[in-house]
């Protein structure tokens, strides 16, 4: 396989919070009946994580599982591990109706760090950032495009958007994070 190039080549913007592209991760899209034991087993074997609660995220020793929809998970693991893990998942679920795909090149993660992450995101998404708890994954709208947003703590936000709109999302977040744009709403 050809080398995976990141969408933004590690772009970074420092305003009153920092906006930067995260290291590319390996991502597996898994669509299946999440209530089945075989799915829980496959997810655990690939990432070490359990099946996340709805709108949740669970972390294991080899990666994390994000809840995307009632029948869909996104497994985030190390890029190099993808071919092996994908084969494992497909093997574990061969007798079950499922879809498992390597979608590493489909989405880009942009990280926002700083004390005012909630405010910077609140300017561009309809999600109530005041009540969004760390560990809740919200697929939502970010300015004009779809994105998933979650906080790993009160000062670190992860934004996962489609690669084709990565530049747009990065620019929108950069404008939102520009010094002088502080609102002090939170």
């Amino acid at each position: 396989m050809s080398d995976l190039q990141s969408a933004l080549q590690g772009a970074r913007f420092d305003g009153y919070v920092s906006v930067f592209e995260a290291q590319p991760a390996g991502m597996i899209q898994l669509r299946a009946d999440l209530a089945e034991d075989a799915v829980a087993h496959a997810v655990h074997r690939a990432t070490g994580a359990t099946i996340p609660q709805p709108l949740g995220l669970s972390t294991g020793d080899r990666g994390e599982a994000l809840w995307m929809a009632p029948d869909e998970l996104l497994l985030r693991v190390l890029t190099d591990a993808i071919p092996e893990l994908l084969a494992d998942v497909q093997d574990d679920l061969r007798d079950h109706h499922h879809l498992a795909l390597d979608v590493s090149a489909m989405r880009t993660e942009i990280r926002v760090e700083g004390a005012a992450v909630r405010e910077v995101l609140a300017k561009v998404t309809p999600v109530d950032m005041e009540t969004l708890k760390p560990g809740t994954v919200r697929r939502t709208r970010l300015a004009q495009v779809a994105a998933a947003i979650w906080l790993s703590n009160d000062e670190t936000a992860h934004v996962l958007c489609f690669r084709s709109v990565a530049t747009y999302v990065f620019d929108v977040l950069s404008v939102s994070a520009r010094k002088g744009g502080e609102v002090g709403a939170f």
Partner: peptide, 12 residues
């Protein structure tokens, strides 16, 4: 009713 989110009109 599927993901339990109170979604704003612009998400729909």
């Amino acid at each position: 009713p599927y993901c339990g989110v109170d979604a704003d009109e612009t998400e729909l």
